[in-house]
Design a protein around this nucleic acid. Structure first.
Lengths: 120, 120
DNA sequence: CTGAATCCCTGCCGATACTG
DNA sequence: CAGTATCGGCAGGGATTCAG
């Protein structure tokens, strides 16, 4: 009788958990959408270590093209995960940093890591 | 001085966390690969409630085509998330069920849900 | 009942070149 | 320094049809 309490991870008793098709409003979809796309998690990883400029990121991820980096950053900003700050002066500098919501992705990435790192 | 302990989620101190490009062996990539693809999480949700036959799943997810359902199940089996069991007798019946590893996705989906459900 | 085969369409992402 | 514009290849996924 005690198995339910141990085994069931239990998705929330929320109507949104009962959808019959992929809904953009589903919380799981929202989270996966924020992480979707090649390079996305690596960009987040860089930002987890603190704010970075565009060229900082380009340097940390040399095989990532400018266009895709730009796309990823725009996506993260649109998802409320990161913020863009233009710094005054010349040459132009831009600083990208995670929002509080972006920092909250830490535990999510940790959960993904833990599952992926488990043997088998 | 106490901020580090609270704020940093801390990705593991593992060499695999330092990759400069998307690596298939990265645990985060492994986990995201298991969840990748439209409908995948919904199929897993169904299986979290117990073993299901092909037509059970088709009934639960009416807008999912046979082909994609087949693709998703094959992917989940290949990822070690689900198992396929042919039941004896006619007509042919197949039962899909999560492996222990598949059940371990529960907390991962929960983490994704929690982040996606949080306001903003 | 449980799929596999085929076709086509769309969106992603990489490469390259160009701009304020 | 920090992007945008454009193009093309390829894979994902939906509809339909066929098979064991």
């Amino acid at each position: 009788m005690a198995n339910q309490t141990v085994i069931r991870p239990g998705l929330p008793d929320d109507p949104r958990a009962a959808v019959a098709a992929p809904e953009p409003g589903c919380p799981v979809e929202i989270a996966l959408a924020a992480l979707r796309g090649r390079w996305t998690t690596l960009v987040i990883r860089e930002l987890l270590n603190g704010g970075r400029s565009f060229s900082d990121l380009r340097e940390a991820l040399p095989d990532l093209s400018d266009k895709v980096l730009s796309d990823r950053l725009a996506g993260l900003v649109a998802a409320g995960v990161a913020e863009r700050h233009r710094l005054p002066g010349r040459p132009v500098r831009t600083r990208y940093a995670l929002t509080p919501r972006g920092r909250d992705l830490g535990p999510v990435l940790q959960a993904l890591w833990d599952w992926g790192a488990a043997q088998q």
